[in-house]
Design a protein around this nucleic acid. Sequence first.
RNA 1: GCCGACGUAGCUCAGGGGUAGAGCAACUGAUUCGUAAUCAGUAGGUCCGCGGUUCAAAUCCGCGCGUCGGCACCA
Length: 644
Amino acid sequence: MNRASTPVTLTLPDGKQRSFPGPVTGAELAAAIGPGLAKAAAVIRVDGKLRDLSAPIDRDADVAIITRDSPEALEVLRHDAAHVLAEAAKELYPDVQVTFGPATESGFYYDFARDEPFTPEDLAKLEARMHEIVERDEPITREVWSRDDAVAFFKSIGETYKAEWIGEIPADEEISIYKQGRFVDLCTGPHLPSTGKLGQAFKLTKVAGAYWRGDARNAQLQRVYGTAWANAKDLDRYLLMLEEAEKRDHRRLGRELDLFHQQEEAVGSVFWHPKGWTLWRIIENYLRRRLDEEGYVEVRTPQLLDRSLWEASGHWEKFRENMFIAQSADERVLALKPMNCPGHVQIFRQGLKSYRDLPLRIAEFGSCHRNEPSGALHGIMRVRAFTQDDAHIFCTEDQVTAESIAFCNLLRSVYRDFGFEDVAVKFSDRPAVRAGTDAIWDKAEAGLKAAVEAARLPYTMNPGEGAFYGPKLEFVLRDAIGRDWQCGTLQLDFVLPERLDASYIGEDGQRHRPVMLHRAIFGSMERFIAILIEQHAGKFPLWLAPVQLVIATITSDADDYARRVFAAAEAAGLRAQLDLANEKINYKVREHSLAKIPVMLVLGKREAENGTVALRRLGGKEQEILELDDAIARLTAESAGPCG
RNA sequence: GCCGACGUAGCUCAGGGGUAGAGCAACUGAUUCGUAAUCAGUAGGUCCGCGGUUCAAAUCCGCGCGUCGGCACCA
């Protein structure tokens, strides 16, 4: 290579330029700028793309040295951690095959093929060996190999998964190989210059099974998860955050706050306790009012429906594995509804519908059963018996866009009322196998896109993931430890009206097919309440709190007055509890604070004599002395919630 | 459904072939107290279930069930 051939001018982020007589590496550039930078450098960004520090730059470019402590370097660092894990695994367990190991949002993982499972003790050994490999500070180098050489090499060392993978890399892509110590891996990079740069702020967290290439028909590999950070402080902060998140877990808070429970005899179902059910009713009634205002009509449809209807709708063919089937004494086969749509179509079909009836928005808090795989169950986030805040909007094609916009705005407003400002929205467009003409799909996708944009909801594309009958929007919320859950949805459906023969009489006097908009805001009441619990860590705002205030006495001399205060609170419609227990006020404050009751009215002799209350807010240090009527009026106003 | 871990009092957990343990909660009594734990006493168990090994199983083995963490699935 003739490195001196072409001069190279590099432009740094501050606009300064550096010229070199020929190709230059990031490491050389950093060294030219200063020894401090050379030491801190992790990778280099060249015209927007991250590259190894050792990669020669042979033409003019905008560049930036990325130091180890920058957010951009973190992903590279985590990817390195995955490689170090793989190297450790090969050293300790020569029989393992390494397959795939990327960085993740908070760390990394590596999938290994090995007959024997990794134990928690193995994890400790792997982690110790990783620390050694970092100590060794092995240089990480990149090479480009020919496809045949690479396949032959990986086959020769028994790495059949890697060999299989190389065979499927597109022909126009380079096969890049990274080496560190005796470890050789197929990888696109970029990587840090040496294992020492990784540092020691990492930790292996768990082992789990994972299918090769994410396909359940393939072999199951062992995935070792870890987390990695630029320094020990960040690592500690992350581990602490996980600990804190555990305390927000809806399953834990559900028990601690006496909201609900689940038990073996009803796997995947929820026993709602009085307090949990109070919360449910508040939320349901809130949404009911919102839907009333939006021109929905509410209905109730049967739980058990005859097989013939499910055959007509297509569920018997497409969804049967997930359905609970029941048989009556007269041998009829019925199924518990997994969805509400067919039932709503039956209501639509009663009587003749005119274009003047459209859009017809049929809503139901529909109780559904789906036989979900056992491994999918998760607290009340993923259950087998759940209630959808479901509705189907029957409309003309021309009404689709306006209805979609109205729905997005409603959803956004509802989410805001519950404290969810940043909702991830996924737009799933036409799948390869689909029903309906391209013209209809064009229209449907354009309508949905207009809706999500008009509602000013940022969204990401989810290409090819739409339902076979139409595109869909998914509204995703996060739980306490960052897992995503789909809640709201909006789907366009051109198929079901056809299959279940729904029609209306148009202006022209002819029969037409309506379009069905399938939509939910919470998705499932159970899931939404679970997310809500985690979002608020059980400390609900006053309008949602199952118990809004506790009236607690300091001495029994105040008991009679406390009863009067309690009666006044109840008369005002507040959800109050009376605590006359023979305990010190410290104890009562602690007890009700742990129960996350938003407000305490503390009553002693002074309050009883003056007709006042000492109002204390959850977590607050201050107390406020108020006239009784004033306190009740204030709390009542505050309890009204976003919907009056 | 698959891989792994786990299952002991209401909760959190200890114990690990031979009387079932602690703290908190519960109950009873004393205490009347000013904003996050008053003191004393009492009661509480099919050690997830079924089978096996053993003189003896909560403990060891097998099979189920459930939960947890992932993977797959999620209209």
